[in-house]
Design a protein around this nucleic acid. Structure first.
Length: 808
RNA sequence: GGGCGGGUGGUGAAAUUGGUAGACACGCUAGCCUUAGGAGCUAGUGCAGUAAUGCAUGGGAGUUCGAGUCUCCCCCCGCCCACCA
């Protein structure tokens, strides 16, 4: 009977068998309730699988396995998000084609993932670089183009001088390129854009009913940055004549209008050139604007940077509230992309304006007074941004600032407006390793979509992967490919050489999983109707504002096009915490502190690694790696292994053990659903510790233990299961049932307190009434001693918990 | 500056509605066993104290019979965003 636990042979054996038996393949089955759980498919980097991947994938693997045991038809798919910069940068260095690198890396990842025993349906494996896949990425782009949601525009884009490519705002971190860390610049370029801002309101409002973790919703809302405010016109006076020009500002504080002592324009504001003849110091102004634009983002937004600006001589604006003439300035602290690119400055009530006014000696007027009632109010030492009552505001004096906001807006004919921080999505990349944008540039017809029957537009094989000096994609060098005929007029034309960003393929991949081999459509109506939406999606917090928002946008578009049956792609979204190196630093190749999952599987086994990653801390928290603690998980499964010697078919469970079993079944089930994996495992350890103390274990009970452990440690439980003459896999067996009554303990410990201090405990039958508990307490020696001669003022009794004697 | 998390033993951490703080695990200590191992078993392990007992959940106040949990003030750490009017 006794066999030693050899993780390597056991894990190899079962992984092969599961594959042969196609244990985890699923098909639509309308007789069963579906459950679609999804992890973010990995980018197959050269470094191989990260232990952070293992944490996320194990968590959903546990949930997938538990839901299968609950009778659900579970889809848990996997694939590769394989377009992207590292493979291309590697190609530039070594001249090895990205397709070759990608093939090699996906093979490594596949082997690694399979060695961990995840219950993926490998028959649905997808790859974003597969033409049969990106055909549909291109197809979706064409639908966006046909609806006017993909357009080409000359915009200031973030430019990385090292990667020689344009970057989305989201790829610029602290003014530097997310990938290589080089400071980015602003460049003007024709770029393909996607009009995500048209969906801003729906992306914002539709979050409410979703089962996303609250922090994820909040982050998306902040990113969309919806803000309600007012547009107000300020007429412009030139020195000579009254012109008809006006400057429109956006403000969220119309109540402070009487305190607006100057206007500020962004250096890019178009009215500057319109008014240049009236601006007497135009040369200096022009110089300032040029300088501001040339600055790198990192310089322009550096923290603690002193504000700069220049006054426009020769023109002034009129405050529409009181008719006063106020100066107009240009300063780079005003952003051209937000609001109207112009602000009314209220130094007394805005921290930035306060700072600016201090530097240039501009007037401050206090109009919202924190104390009431008052006729006047001195300017404070810093900007006052709170609420109060109006002063120095004409007819509006004495009103609360909330009332005044409405009234002043009406008085100056302000227009209510909603603004967003969200910008349209820069969708062009001057890169090779991405999906070609399926557009043909025709000198006579303009931008012509490639006819759908000609999709996919295949990425041609090239030899030089470098962006050329003009900043064009390497595809520009593939002249045979670039030169083509216009589908519309049949004249000579050129293909678009920009490619898509790697967010493209990941914006819809979860749809392809539902029907991955379909060549007529990206997925059949039936498959989509059955599987969508994704029921549970887990991934990194770092993707909350990028990938998650982009894919919600694409999905909503496809919903509007009647291509998908739901308006949201994901019903539930959760996130795992980071896995850090020992000591708490981030894992990185350069620091040499990366833990390779292969080593862990080799030394401890996949089951131990999985358990360890789930046990070591709360799932949503960052966790530092610890080899020492992994040993504890290995010991735990070895103890379960050794318990097999105690299994006797005719053994009978005593009452305590039976109670513990049922409460453990309860706890493990609910803990898994709440992602409290650490406490689920701890309760299994408690059960195991207890079983070590009983003389023999009934086979049925041991099987229940294995069933509870199976989602966490699928291999060892399958092996032990097979020892019990079970022919079918443990992973096809239903989840054990708990009996609520048996789960309730027969006796409970009651705490006895005197004046709130613990003076003893009593072991009493559960459900004992107050009188019985009091009687027992008073018989207790220590309690009696403490109560002796004292008057009881009050008794607090909490059933099943405590009795507290409050003495005078 | 804004948003969101956190702060509990030597360590990772537990703790329904306020009700035995430290479950579970690592480490450590002592003992046992041995085919000497990255093994197993038994007992112990918040701090102080021989003990009774006292003190302990970042700090301070408060509410309560009773606070890790609720309220107020303050300090510190992490992540994300940030001259967004």
């Amino acid at each position: 009977m006794h066999r030693t636990y050899d993780h390597k042979s056991i894990e190899d054996k079962w992984q092969k068998r599961w594959q042969q038996e196609k244990l985890y393949e699923v098909h639509e089955d309308t007789s069963k309730k579906k459950f679609y759980c999804l992890i973010e498919f990995p980018y197959p980097s050269g470094e191989g699988l990260h232990v952070g991947h293992v944490r996320s994938y194990t968590a959903l693997d546990i949930i997938a396995r538990k839901r299968r045991a609950n009778g659900y038809n579970v889809l848990y798919p996997i694939g590769w998000d394989a377009f992207g910069l590292p493979a291309e940068n590697y190609a530039i260095k070594t001249n090895i084609h990205p397709a070759v690198t990608t093939k090699k890396n996906t093979d490594t990842y596949r082997r690694q993932l399979q060695s961990l025993g995840f219950s993926f349906d490998w028959s649905r494996e997808i790859n974003t670089t597969d033409p049969a896949y990106y055909k549909w990425t291109q197809w979706i782009f064409l639908q966006l183009f046909k609806k006017g949601l993909a357009y080409k525009a000359k915009t200031l884009v973030n430019w990385c001088p090292s990667c020689k490519t344009g970057l989305a705002n989201e790829e610029v971190v602290d003014g530097a390129c997310e990938r290589c860390g080089t400071g980015t610049e602003k460049r003007e370029r024709e770029q393909w854009m996607l009009a995500i801002t048209k969906y801003a309101d729906r992306l914002y409002d539709d979050l409410d009913p979703l089962d996303f973790w609250e922090q994820i919703k909040t982050q998306q809302r902040n990113w969309i940055g919806r803000n309600k405010g007012v547009e107000i016109d300020f007429p412009i006076d030139t020195n000579d004549t009254k012109s008809n020009e006006k400057i429109t500002v956006f403000t969220t504080r119309p109540d402070t209008l009487f305190g607006a002592t100057y206007l500020v324009l962004a250096p890019e504001h178009p009215i500057l050139t319109q008014l240049q003849n009236s601006i007497s110091n135009w040369k200096e102004v022009e110089g300032y604007c040029k300088q501001a634009r040339a600055q790198k983002d990192i310089e322009r937004t550096a923290q603690g940077r002193k504000k700069t600006g220049i006054e426009l001589f020769g023109i002034s604006a009129e405050n529409p509230a009181n008719g006063e003439r106020i100066p107009v300035w240009v300063a780079d602290y005003v952003l051209s992309q937000y609001g109207t690119g112009a602000i009314m400055a209220v130094p007394a009530h805005d921290v930035r304006d306060f700072e600016f006014a201090d530097i240039f000696n501009l007037k401050k007027i206090m109009v919202v007074c924190p104390h009431y009632p008052k006729k006047t109010c001195p300017v404070l030492d810093s900007a006052y941004t709170g609420d109060g009552h109006m002063v120095a505001s004409g007819d509006f004096n004495g009103q609360t600032n909330a009332e005044a906001a409405k009234n002043i807006t009406a008085f100056v004919h302000g227009r209510e407006r909603v603004t967003y921080k969200l910008r349209d999505w820069v969708f062009s990349r001057q890169r090779y390793w991405g999906e070609p944008i399926p557009i043909i540039n025709c000198p006579t017809c303009g931008f012509v979509p490639v006819p759908e029957e000609q999709l996919p537009v295949r990425l041609p094989m090239i030899e030089n992967f470098k962006t050329n000096d003009a900043g064009e994609s390497p595809l520009a060098g593939a002249t045979d490919w670039v030169n083509t005929t216009c589908p519309s007029c049949e004249g000579l034309a050129k293909r678009e050489t920009d490619t898509m960003p790697n967010w493209a393929g990941s914006s819809w991949y979860y749809l392809r999983y539902t029907d991955p081999h379909n060549s007529n459509t990206f997925s059949s109506t039936e498959a989509l109707a059955y599987w969508t939406p994704v029921d549970w999606y887990n991934g990194g917090m770092e993707h909350t504002t990028l990938h998650l928002l982009y894919s919600r946008f694409w999905h909503k578009f496809l919903f509007d096009e009647k291509q998908v049956p739901t308006s949201e792609p994901y019903a539930k979204r959760t996130s795992q915490g980071l896995v850090l190196a020992e000591g708490g630093a981030k894992m990185s190749k350069s620091k040499g502190n990366v833990i390779n999952p292969d080593d862990m599987v080799e030394r401890f086994g996949a089951d131990t690694l999985r358990l360890y990653e789930m046990f070591m801390g709360p799932f949503d928290q960052a966790i530092a790696w610890s080899i020492d603690n992994m040993v504890g998980c290995r010991r735990f499964i070895e103890r379960v292994w050794r318990l097999q010697e105690k299994v006797k078919q005719d053994a009978i469970l005593d009452e305590d053990t039976s109670t513990l079993f049922h409460s453990t079944i309860e706890k493990v089930g609910t803990d898994i659903e709440q992602m409290h994996f650490n406490t689920a495992i701890s309760s299994l350890m408690i059960l195991t510790n207890h079983l070590e103390k009983v003389s023999s274990i009934p086979e049925k009970a041991y099987k229940d233990l294995l069933l509870l452990l199976a989602p966490f440690a699928p291999h060892i439980t399958e092996e032990l299961w097979s020892f019990l003459n079970e022919k079918k896999s443990i992973h096809t067996h239903p989840w054990p049932l708990s009996d609520v009554h048996t789960a309730l303990p027969k006796t409970v410990t009651i705490v006895v307190q005197i004046n709130g201090k613990i003076r003893g405990t009593l072991l009493l039958p559960s459900q004992s009434a107050e009188t019985a508990v009091r009687e027992a307490a008073e018989k207790n020696e220590n309690i009696a001693k403490n109560l002796n001669g004292k008057t009881i003022k009050k008794i607090i009794f909490v059933k099943e918990k405590l009795i507290n004697f409050v003495l005078l």
